[in-house]
Design a binder for these strands. Structure first.
Lengths: 232, 232
DNA sequence: CGGCTCCTTGACATCGCTCAAGTGTAGTGG
DNA sequence: CCACTACACTTGAGCGATGTCAAGGAGCCG
């Protein structure tokens, strides 16, 4: 299957290094809105690969709707998910010429793609764009650093606690969480197995900290308790 | 004890937002050399704290000589080391207004400090500086992503294998490694305990993969084997 | 209803942690 | 040069959190 970058290369050969490609007006999602003014928007079905590992890093991506995971496989099939990306989040803004992480749509997703060279060229002319590109990268770094802490030094219970707290915050709802990702995705994000994720969620439900009306729908009963478990 | 940022605030109150402070000529260490042209150089003794957690993020730091660790403490005293920084490496270039990780000198170290506002102001005038700042951040991100993979999905043996391979590469020597950091530092970097680090090193020595003339000096006997163990 | 896929649960194994000695090794002072 | 101390590192024994393997349940869709 063709990845998004490969597809866009066919659609937009003439876009390279021009500062304005197909214009998408009034994007609400860019940290500074002008970044949303260049590039194209594409739709991906649940499960579709947006970026493959080792794809040339030609684009920066912003999630307009849906949820995306970035992931990397190790030799023996183990998988690490680097991040879950939701409305407004950027990905693919990395130092290397090829992407180290693949990106896949967890749900149907709308993604805005900006040519990297175009973005860097625009940054060369406009300091605000340069600063916006730096912000995107620095935010990814911040998220990655927090995640390292979790992976290196937290117990299964603390990992799940942190994860649910993070998801609640990102959804702007403190009592109700919708999980677009599977238990396996959560496990690969937290460095656990699917069984441990499942057991720990059950444990939190038994303790009355959360309720699980369905496996993808979490009600936070004792928010304080969950925050305490995060052990930051 | 006063951290470096606090000290520099006293030394250099007049520097803020001026593009050239105390000039250090001919720095060989910046990715683009002009970044090395602003700021001051300070010396730190082994064990000194350069940045404290939650310090305001006023400076960007570059290691001129010596080794530095960035670290963060969790509630119950557990510690995660985010990175080991050596000659030429930058740290403190983060998204937030306060530093999330402390930085401490592992050996006596010479550090070049650049005022962040000064750097960003210069970036607003010179696209090459803006690009250099982005590069620094993107490199940190790359290192952090690789490290997440290690923390989340590698066994103790693979972690030690990856660590030794990384150190060998960074020292430009493929047969001999000098470890400036303690076993506890290595443990906190890899998400292990000191005992497991020690045991795993011994195990590699018994297997003939490495030799340990002293605990801080590693001879790589079978580089291929070590690389295979890294499981990337 | 059958056949998916995803999730949960149980029994057991194991890797890495905890606790507790014991062994260097470097530095200090006599 | 030799004690003495302090600190870093190693090693052993036992345990426990998490992984592995296997079975079964729940929801979904044709």
């Amino acid at each position: 299957m063709l990845t998004a970058a490969a597809t866009a290369r066919n659609i937009l050969p003439e876009m390279k290094d021009r500062s304005a490609g197909i214009v998408v007006k009034g994007s609400r999602f860019a940290p500074s809105n002008f970044i949303g003014l260049m590039g194209i928007t594409m739709h991906f079905e649940r499960g579709a690969e947006i970026v493959a590992e080792e794809d040339p890093a030609e684009y920066v991506y912003q999630v307009i709707s849906g949820t995306v995971r970035t992931c990397k496989l190790l030799s023996n099939g183990r998988r690490q998910i680097g991040a879950f990306l939701m409305e407004g989040d950027y990905f693919g803004m990395e130092a290397r010429a090829v992407h180290c992480f693949a990106a896949e749509a967890i749900t149907d997703a709308t993604i805005h793609m900006i040519n990297r060279n175009t973005a860097f060229a625009a940054a060369g002319r406009d300091p605000e764009i340069a600063r916006a590109l730096w912000d995107i990268t620095a935010r990814s770094l911040d998220a990655c650093q927090q995640h390292s802490l979790l992976l290196g030094r937290k117990t299964a219970l603390e990992k799940i606690g942190s994860f649910l707290t993070e998801m609640a915050e990102r959804q702007g709802s403190h009592a109700e969480i919708d999980l677009p990702m599977s238990r396996q995705d959560i496990a690969d994000y937290l460095g656990l197995t699917i069984e441990t994720v499942s057991r720990t969620m059950t444990q939190l439900e038994c303790a009355g900290t959360i309720a699980l009306p369905t496996s993808r729908h979490v009600l936070v009963k004792r928010r304080q308790e969950l925050a305490r478990l995060s052990a930051c």
